[in-house]
């Protein structure tokens, strides 16, 4: 087994609105190893996006322990969380979330500008390399509004991988795309995985889930199934949940 990248233990997330308490995640325990390609699926409102937000340090859990690359990140400062998001995690969103005022090159460069250790030349080289990987270098000076949805998502992928993160987190990456563009994006993720990337993808598209090696199913804030693709073999966690 390769190196443990993510280790969640007893994670809970409760939202409070007025006097209503909503348990979005209940006692989630999960491990992700380096190089894995995981899909998280489940019906709308089951908590899969919340889980991805916690994994990406976009939100904090109400309870539980989270270690990323061996480091406890459950209770770290906002600055440290921002640093980890910047250097260890790459995000791909359903709605692309490109900045409309920035061109393609600037969008891809954006996370790199938050790193003090990179020179302008370093950043330019990393942007170029990322755009080449997604085959978008010819559109470097275009603005998002000048691109198709598929192209925008490829730019978003380039932005996610530009900083060589430890893990890519994708939230419904094909949700806003037609089938042709969705297929192209999935092929791109496959290619990145084959090159060694660790990917964790939220999706409720069965075809997209098929691309992953391991499928985690979430229902009512709990992991109800954690299976390797085409093996029928349940992981230890899913058995524990089932028990």
């Amino acid at each position: 087994m390769s190196e443990l990248l993510i280790d969640l233990k007893g994670i809970k997330k409760v939202f409070y609105t007025d006097e209503i308490e909503t348990h979005a995640l209940s006692d989630i325990s999960l491990s992700v190893h380096k190089g894995e390609y995981i899909s998280i699926s489940g019906p709308s409102g089951c908590g899969k996006s919340t889980l991805l937000s916690l994994l990406g340090l976009l939100d904090t859990s109400s309870e539980g322990h989270y270690a990323l690359a061996g480091k406890n990140v459950s209770d770290i400062s906002k600055r440290e969380r921002a640093r980890i998001r910047n250097q260890e995690i790459g995000f791909i969103f359903q709605s692309f979330n490109l900045i409309s005022d920035l061109d393609v090159e600037e969008n891809v460069e954006l996370p790199l500008t938050y790193r003090a250790d990179l020179s302008k030349a370093d950043r330019a080289s990393m942007v170029k390399s990322a755009l080449e990987k997604v085959d978008m270098q010819h559109r470097a000076k275009h603005f998002p509004s000048q691109l198709s949805g598929g192209q925008q998502q490829r730019v978003a992928v380039a932005r996610a991988i530009a900083g060589n993160p430890s893990i890519l987190l994708a939230d419904e990456p094909t949700g806003n795309l037609d089938s042709k563009n969705a297929e192209a994006v999935m092929q791109l993720l496959d290619k990145l995985h084959s090159e060694g990337a660790t990917i964790c993808m939220v999706t409720h598209d069965p075809r997209s889930a098929m691309s992953a090696q391991r499928n985690i199913e979430v229902l009512d804030g709990r992991v109800v199934s954690d299976q390797l693709q085409n093996s029928g073999e349940a992981t230890i966690q899913s058995i524990e949940v089932a028990l």
């Binding site: 976009l58 998001r85 932005r159």
Partner: peptide, 10 residues
């Protein structure tokens, strides 16, 4: 939100 997700400090 996007910028912070990408690692921008507050």
């Amino acid at each position: 939100g996007i910028k912070r997700a990408l690692g921008a400090m507050d």
